[in-house]
Amino acid sequence: MRLKMHAVRFTADQSLFDFIQAKLNKLDTFHDHIVSGEVFLKLEGADSNKVKEKIIEVRLMLPGKEIFVKENDKSFEAATDRVLEVLKDKLVRCKQKRNDFSSQAIVDEKARMQADETVDVDDL
């Protein structure tokens, strides 16, 4: 997956970018149509001398849909792990909705097929 990474008002180390890329590459196993993504790294309290929290924002682009998650923690690595968990859940739900055909015609056909199966078993 192609990720664009942005460190807002600070310079991030390449190893941090590599860590985030490696973690988010695992999302391809949960949804096969991820087009691209953007990652924003921010420091809360960067205007003052003390940095309180580290914030990571991830935006994933899917065909016809966009998923956005924002998490904060004491380190970017911990925040990345939290973002990964939320994104996994959202991607799985999105894929289930895509594969769930709940139109009335399909529901009726499924019910008819189940009824036919029960009749076949009773005939034996």
Rank of each mutant, 00 (worst) to 15 (best):
N49H: 14
T11A: 12
M113S: 00
V86R: 15
A115L: 13
K70C: 13
M5T: 13
F30D: 04
D28L: 13
L3H: 03
E57C: 00
Q21F: 05
D122W: 09
A79E: 09
M61P: 03
N72C: 01
T118F: 15
D73K: 12
R59D: 06
Q114P: 01
K65S: 15
K97S: 09
K54S: 01
N72L: 06
D100Q: 06
E117D: 06
I20F: 12
H33K: 14
L124A: 05
F10Q: 01
Q114D: 02
D108N: 11
I56R: 09
V58P: 03
V58T: 05
A78V: 11
K97M: 07
K23M: 04
F40D: 07
F30A: 07
L16T: 01
K4E: 15
M61G: 03
I20D: 08
R2T: 11
D28V: 05
L60K: 02
A78M: 10
R9A: 06
L41M: 10
D120S: 08
D47N: 10
S103E: 15
F30G: 01
N49A: 09
S15T: 14
S75M: 02
A79I: 11
L24G: 00
V51T: 14
H6N: 14
M1F: 12
C94L: 10
P63T: 04
K65H: 14
A79N: 04
R59S: 12
K88V: 11
F10E: 00
S75I: 07
E117L: 10
K110S: 03
T11C: 05
I56H: 04
E53D: 15
S15K: 14
M1D: 08
A78N: 12
K88P: 01
F68K: 09
A111Y: 09
F19W: 04
L24F: 15
Q21A: 10
E53T: 03
S15F: 09
V69I: 10
S48M: 11
I106S: 02
F19E: 10
L27K: 07
Q114G: 00
V51Q: 08
T11Y: 10
D73C: 06
S102H: 13
R9Y: 06
